[in-house]
Simulated scan of single mutants.
Amino acid sequence: MRYLTRQFALGALRRGKGIEQFLGGTEVNGERAVRWVAISPMNGQYRISLHTVQDLDDDRAGDLSEFLSLDPADEVYVGEGRELGTSVDEEEAILLAERFASAAPDHWVNYAVAGEDYMDYIRNRRDTAQGA
C-alpha cells in the first residue's frame, strides 16, 4: 500500500519530509500533460506547490520532477512548481492542497512516490485503449 494515512502524512511533514500526490492528466496548449501537488517543509513552514509537466507516455518514467514543465508560471524556476500557498501548520498545509489543487485526502504519498501513480495511469490508459 503506497498511500499514507492522514497521521502518517502529518508525521512525514513533522519529520521534515515532503509528501505529494499525482492528480492526473490535463492539456496545456494542445499538449498532453500531467499534474501533481507537493507539500515541502521549508524554513519552518510548509510550501504547497502545483506542478504541470509534459506527459511522456512512458510507463517506465516515474521521476515526475524530471519532466519538462508546461506551466508558464514555473518557467523561471523549473521544478519548483507554482506556489499555491504556505502554512506553518502541517494539517492546514494538507487542507490547503486539498482545497486549492483538488487533492484527495486518501492519496498522499511520500516525496518521489507520485511517479508510481503516473506509471499506473499510463498503463491503465494503454489497457483502456487496447480494449476499445
Rank of each mutant, 00 (worst) to 15 (best):
E20I: 10
L70N: 05
A129C: 09
V34I: 14
A132V: 10
G115Y: 02
D74Q: 04
T5M: 04
V76S: 13
E98R: 08
A103G: 05
R2E: 08
V53Y: 00
H51Q: 06
D63C: 10
R82E: 12
V28F: 08
A12V: 02
R15W: 02
V53C: 03
S49H: 00
E31M: 03
P72G: 10
V34L: 11
E116S: 07
F67E: 03
D58S: 13
L84I: 06
S40N: 12
R32M: 06
G30Y: 02
L68P: 05
S102N: 15
A112S: 15
L95Y: 08
I39Y: 01
D106Q: 08
Q54H: 15
E27W: 00
M119F: 03
M42A: 13
L56K: 12
Y77E: 14
K17A: 09
T52D: 00
L68Q: 09
G11A: 07
L84H: 05
I122A: 07
D106P: 07
T26S: 12
G44D: 04
T52Q: 06
Q21L: 13
I39L: 09
R126D: 06
S102H: 15
R35I: 00
H107C: 13
G44N: 09
A9N: 03
A61V: 06
G25F: 00
N124R: 14
E80N: 14
M119I: 01
G30D: 01
M1L: 11
A132D: 10
A73V: 10
D74R: 02
F67D: 03
G24N: 09
A103P: 09
R2S: 10
N124C: 11
Y121G: 06
A12M: 07
G62A: 13
N43F: 15
A12T: 08
E75V: 12
Y77Q: 14
V113T: 12
L23S: 05
I19N: 01
A61S: 05
D58C: 05
A129T: 11
R6S: 11
M1K: 14
W108G: 01
L68F: 13
A93Q: 01
R126N: 09
E92T: 05
D127W: 14
L13M: 00
G16A: 04
L56Y: 08
W36K: 00
A61Y: 02
L64I: 00
Q54W: 11
I48S: 03
A61D: 02
L13Y: 03
A61Q: 02
G24R: 00
L10Y: 02
P41C: 05
V76T: 13
Q7A: 11
T128F: 13
F8Y: 10
A38I: 06
V28D: 07
G18W: 01
G79W: 06
N110V: 12
A12C: 10
F8D: 14
E27S: 09
A33G: 02
Y46N: 01
